[in-house]
Design a protein around this nucleic acid. Structure first.
Length: 323
DNA sequence: AAAGCGGGGCT
DNA sequence: AGCCCAGCTTT
């Protein structure tokens, strides 16, 4: 790598920013071009923004170079053009977070700050069987403290480089080379044969789409409803008799329920935290046998407000002037 | 805590 | 098509 052995904090900074969310192979030529066109902080601070963006073209995350220029100007104005050498000052620069501040202060200034990036998280989570996700505040703190406690205070630079290399080359995301890993005998994940569950993923919010077909039974003065039970949404609330389907068009309904085909079913959706509920309201022909068979509750239309309905039902009732 | 920000490689 | 990756800022 072209930045190998470099001690200039500016060039280390450039390399670290380029490598954020970017593969080494992809970033290399950008790094070479960048330090050639802008060899130092002053050059970057005085850069033409159009040219800077042009140089960055294809690399993505364009705020990275925008922030670098802002930071370069800040270094010129507040630090006399000399790259700051304390963690706090480095961290305060635009576009530099905990990882990059630790990387620069350890690599350029040999200060004892442990880097925590994706590689480090992977290594530590496996070796120490850390199940907290780095994407939570708790997990972030846990990995930060653990990494800092392991850091070699004598050679923070070598330590940081080593643990990231271990993550990149041996303790890889897929097919880690545990046979050649120096920590094989100490790795809790390996010993438990649980390499594949680490690092714990961010729990992505999956919005499940559900289709509830409601069957509306009524007569002149009454509606027929049911109380929802079971471990599902709207427990203990009242709705029309319903059947769930995997689509809005078709539903398997009992043979003895007669849909009023002259009335198109009404469709209303409601977005919940984890579910998108689509209600399809079918107007049905009512007869006493079905009411009894489905064990429906007869309520007076002028007493609807005494019952707790889900919002989706309220919407339907309001739209149709029941409420 | 979650969204937004690019692009490329991998499955 | 979805997931992941040497992150940070804004909301």
């Amino acid at each position: 790598m072209p930045w190998k052995g470099i001690s200039d904090p500016y060039k280390i900074w450039v390399s670290e920013i380029i490598l954020q969310q970017t593969k080494v192979e992809q970033g290399e030529k950008y790094y070479v071009a960048f330090v050639k066109k802008y060899p130092n902080v002053a050059d970057l601070a005085n850069a033409n923004q159009e040219e800077l963006y042009a140089l960055w073209q294809g690399l993505g995350y364009y705020n990275r170079c925008k922030n670098m220029m802002l930071a370069a100007k800040e270094i010129m104005h507040s630090h006399g053009g000399k790259f700051p050498n304390t963690y706090a000052e480095i961290l305060s620069l635009k576009g530099i977070g905990a990882y990059t501040a630790a990387a620069i202060s350890s690599f350029a200034f040999h200060q004892p700050y442990a880097v925590v990036d994706g590689n480090v998280v992977r290594v530590l989570s496996r070796v120490f069987a850390v199940k907290d996700s780095f994407h939570t505040a708790k997990g972030k703190l846990a990995f930060q403290l653990l990494a800092q406690s392991l850091l070699s205070k004598k050679e923070p630079s070598a330590y940081n480089q080593a643990i990231m290399d271990l993550g990149a080359l041996i303790c890889r995301p897929k097919n880690p080379n545990c046979q050649e890993c120096p920590f094989q005998k100490n790795c809790k994940a390996y010993l438990a044969d649980e390499i594949n569950i680490y690092p714990t993923k961010k729990t992505k919010l999956v919005i499940k789409e559900r289709f509830l077909h409601f069957f509306l039974f009524e007569d002149k003065h009454h509606l027929y409803i049911t109380k929802r039970t079971g471990n599902d949404i709207w427990r203990n609330l009242f709705t029309f008799f319903s059947i769930e389907s995997d689509n809005a068009e078709k539903v398997e309904f009992p043979n003895d329920i007669k849909i009023v085909h002259s009335v198109e079913p009404q469709v209303i959706s409601q977005l919940l935290t984890h579910q998108k509920i689509t209600g399809i309201f079918h107007h049905c022909k009512t007869n006493p046998q079905i009411i009894a068979k489905l064990n429906l509750i007869q309520i007076k239309k002028n007493a609807l407000s005494q019952f707790a309905f889900p919002r989706l039902l309220i919407s339907f009732l309001e739209k149709n002037n029941y409420l």
